[in-house]
Protein backbone atom coordinates (compact mmCIF):
# COMPACT_ATOMS: atom_id res chain seq x y z
CA UNK A 1 0.00 0.00 0.00
CA UNK A 2 1.30 3.41 -0.90
CA UNK A 3 0.88 6.21 1.59
CA UNK A 4 1.11 9.72 0.35
CA UNK A 5 0.85 12.68 2.66
CA UNK A 6 -0.77 15.62 0.96
CA UNK A 7 0.02 18.88 2.68
CA UNK A 8 -2.71 21.54 2.65
CA UNK A 9 -2.05 24.42 0.41
CA UNK A 10 -0.36 27.27 2.32
CA UNK A 11 0.23 25.20 5.44
CA UNK A 12 2.53 26.88 8.00
CA UNK A 13 2.90 29.88 5.75
CA UNK A 14 -0.61 30.97 6.77
CA UNK A 15 0.26 30.63 10.45
CA UNK A 16 3.46 32.51 9.77
CA UNK A 17 1.65 35.41 8.09
CA UNK A 18 -0.98 35.63 10.81
CA UNK A 19 1.75 35.63 13.46
CA UNK A 20 3.72 38.29 11.60
CA UNK A 21 0.60 40.46 11.19
CA UNK A 22 -0.17 40.16 14.90
CA UNK A 23 3.44 41.06 15.71
CA UNK A 24 3.37 44.13 13.47
CA UNK A 25 0.08 45.31 15.01
CA UNK A 26 1.46 44.78 18.50
CA UNK A 27 4.69 46.65 17.71
CA UNK A 28 2.74 49.50 16.12
CA UNK A 29 0.53 49.74 19.22
CA UNK A 30 3.54 49.79 21.55
CA UNK A 31 5.26 52.50 19.50
CA UNK A 32 2.06 54.58 19.27
CA UNK A 33 1.29 54.36 22.98
CA UNK A 34 4.89 55.16 23.90
CA UNK A 35 5.11 58.18 21.62
CA UNK A 36 1.67 59.58 22.46
CA UNK A 37 1.73 59.01 26.22
CA UNK A 38 0.60 62.14 28.06
CA UNK A 39 3.33 63.67 30.15
CA UNK A 40 2.04 64.50 33.65
CA UNK A 41 1.82 68.23 34.37
CA UNK A 42 4.60 68.33 36.93
CA UNK A 43 6.38 71.56 37.63
CA UNK A 44 9.94 71.13 38.83
CA UNK A 45 10.53 72.80 42.18
CA UNK A 46 13.62 74.86 42.88
CA UNK A 47 15.73 73.85 45.88
CA UNK A 48 14.29 76.70 47.96
CA UNK A 49 10.64 75.83 47.22
CA UNK A 50 8.13 73.44 48.78
CA UNK A 51 4.86 72.24 47.22
CA UNK A 52 1.77 73.16 49.25
CA UNK A 53 0.01 69.91 48.36
CA UNK A 54 2.72 67.49 49.41
CA UNK A 55 5.17 69.39 51.61
CA UNK A 56 3.00 71.03 54.27
CA UNK A 57 1.22 69.80 57.38
CA UNK A 58 -2.61 70.01 57.33
CA UNK A 59 -2.46 73.09 59.56
CA UNK A 60 0.10 74.76 57.28
CA UNK A 61 -2.06 74.00 54.23
CA UNK A 62 -5.02 75.79 55.81
CA UNK A 63 -2.88 78.75 56.91
CA UNK A 64 -1.26 79.05 53.47
CA UNK A 65 -4.66 79.18 51.71
CA UNK A 66 -5.85 81.84 54.16
CA UNK A 67 -2.69 83.92 53.72
CA UNK A 68 -3.01 83.96 49.92
CA UNK A 69 -6.56 85.30 50.20
CA UNK A 70 -5.58 87.76 52.94
CA UNK A 71 -2.75 89.08 50.75
CA UNK A 72 -5.30 90.16 48.13
CA UNK A 73 -7.40 91.99 50.71
CA UNK A 74 -4.34 93.65 52.23
CA UNK A 75 -3.04 94.68 48.79
CA UNK A 76 -6.43 96.18 47.89
CA UNK A 77 -6.51 98.33 51.04
CA UNK A 78 -5.41 101.97 50.69
CA UNK A 79 -2.77 101.64 53.44
CA UNK A 80 -0.77 98.80 54.99
CA UNK A 81 -2.97 97.17 57.63
CA UNK A 82 -1.72 96.33 61.11
CA UNK A 83 -2.18 92.84 62.50
CA UNK A 84 -4.69 94.16 65.03
CA UNK A 85 -6.70 95.79 62.20
CA UNK A 86 -6.74 92.53 60.26
CA UNK A 87 -7.82 90.58 63.34
CA UNK A 88 -10.56 93.13 64.03
CA UNK A 89 -11.85 92.66 60.48
CA UNK A 90 -12.07 88.92 61.17
CA UNK A 91 -9.52 88.15 58.46
CA UNK A 92 -8.03 84.67 58.89
CA UNK A 93 -5.43 83.62 59.89
CA UNK A 94 -4.93 86.78 61.99
CA UNK A 95 -8.12 86.48 64.06
CA UNK A 96 -7.74 84.46 67.25
CA UNK A 97 -10.52 81.89 67.08
CA UNK A 98 -10.85 78.13 67.55
CA UNK A 99 -9.25 77.53 64.14
CA UNK A 100 -6.29 79.72 65.19
CA UNK A 101 -5.70 77.43 68.20
CA UNK A 102 -6.17 74.23 66.20
CA UNK A 103 -3.65 75.32 63.56
CA UNK A 104 -0.72 76.27 65.78
CA UNK A 105 -1.74 79.46 67.70
CA UNK A 106 0.57 81.75 65.71
CA UNK A 107 1.69 85.10 67.12
CA UNK A 108 1.50 87.53 64.19
CA UNK A 109 3.51 90.69 63.72
CA UNK A 110 3.72 93.01 60.73
CA UNK A 111 6.03 95.67 59.33
CA UNK A 112 6.73 97.61 56.13
CA UNK A 113 9.83 96.92 54.06
CA UNK A 114 12.33 99.35 52.59
CA UNK A 115 10.84 99.07 49.10
CA UNK A 116 7.16 99.43 49.98
CA UNK A 117 6.59 95.74 50.69
CA UNK A 118 4.48 94.56 53.61
CA UNK A 119 5.63 91.66 55.79
CA UNK A 120 3.54 89.54 58.18
CA UNK A 121 5.37 87.03 60.40
CA UNK A 122 3.53 84.22 62.22
CA UNK A 123 5.46 82.33 64.91
CA UNK A 124 3.68 79.21 66.19
CA UNK A 125 2.75 78.58 69.81
CA UNK A 126 2.62 74.88 68.92
CA UNK A 127 5.40 74.23 66.35
CA UNK A 128 4.41 70.55 66.10
CA UNK A 129 1.30 71.64 64.18
CA UNK A 130 2.86 74.27 61.91
CA UNK A 131 6.13 76.12 61.40
CA UNK A 132 6.88 79.84 61.20
CA UNK A 133 5.23 81.57 58.24
CA UNK A 134 6.26 84.80 56.55
CA UNK A 135 3.92 86.56 54.11
CA UNK A 136 5.61 89.11 51.84
CA UNK A 137 3.29 91.35 49.79
CA UNK A 138 4.85 93.34 46.96
CA UNK A 139 3.26 94.70 43.82
CA UNK A 140 -0.13 93.40 44.91
CA UNK A 141 1.15 89.83 45.07
CA UNK A 142 1.61 87.72 48.17
CA UNK A 143 4.41 85.16 48.56
CA UNK A 144 4.58 82.85 51.58
CA UNK A 145 7.78 81.47 53.11
CA UNK A 146 7.97 78.71 55.71
CA UNK A 147 10.55 77.39 58.14
CA UNK A 148 9.95 74.71 60.82
CA UNK A 149 10.07 75.73 64.45
CA UNK A 150 9.82 79.15 66.08
CA UNK A 151 12.30 81.29 64.15
CA UNK A 152 13.02 84.87 63.07
CA UNK A 153 13.64 85.83 59.43
CA UNK A 154 16.87 87.53 58.29
CA UNK A 155 17.12 91.30 58.83
CA UNK A 156 16.50 91.93 55.14
CA UNK A 157 14.09 89.16 54.19
CA UNK A 158 14.41 89.13 50.40
CA UNK A 159 14.18 85.87 48.49
CA UNK A 160 17.94 85.23 48.43
CA UNK A 161 18.41 85.91 52.15
CA UNK A 162 15.43 83.74 53.09
CA UNK A 163 16.60 80.86 50.88
CA UNK A 164 20.13 81.13 52.28
CA UNK A 165 18.71 80.99 55.82
CA UNK A 166 16.89 77.74 55.09
CA UNK A 167 13.41 79.13 54.52
CA UNK A 168 11.23 77.49 51.83
CA UNK A 169 8.99 79.42 49.47
CA UNK A 170 5.58 77.74 49.41
CA UNK A 171 4.23 77.23 45.88
CA UNK A 172 1.26 75.48 44.34
CA UNK A 173 0.56 74.10 40.89
CA UNK A 174 -2.76 74.33 39.09
CA UNK A 175 -3.60 70.97 37.55
CA UNK A 176 -6.42 71.88 35.23
CA UNK A 177 -7.28 68.85 33.18
CA UNK A 178 -6.01 66.27 35.65
CA UNK A 179 -9.19 64.34 35.14
CA UNK A 180 -10.49 65.61 31.82
Amino acid sequence: MVHQIVRPSGVERETLWVGLAAGVILCAAVVTVTLRAAVPEMVALAAHQVDSRSGLTPAEQGLYADLLVAAQDIAAAPAVSSVSDLAAEGLPPFVRDASWRARGAHEWSGWSGEHGEAFYLGQPGDPALAGTLLLRIAGGEGVVWLKPGVVRPPAHPDADALAAAGWKQVVFSFNAGVTR
Partner: peptide
Protein backbone atom coordinates in the same frame (compact mmCIF):
# COMPACT_ATOMS: atom_id res chain seq x y z
CA UNK B 1 -12.52 81.22 33.36
CA UNK B 2 -10.76 78.62 35.51
CA UNK B 3 -12.09 79.54 38.95
CA UNK B 4 -9.50 77.37 40.71
CA UNK B 5 -6.45 78.78 38.96
CA UNK B 6 -5.24 80.44 42.19
CA UNK B 7 -6.48 77.98 44.80
CA UNK B 8 -3.84 75.83 46.55
CA UNK B 9 -5.31 72.41 45.85
CA UNK B 10 -5.32 69.39 48.14
CA UNK B 11 -4.62 65.84 47.01
Amino acid sequence: IEANAEVPLLA
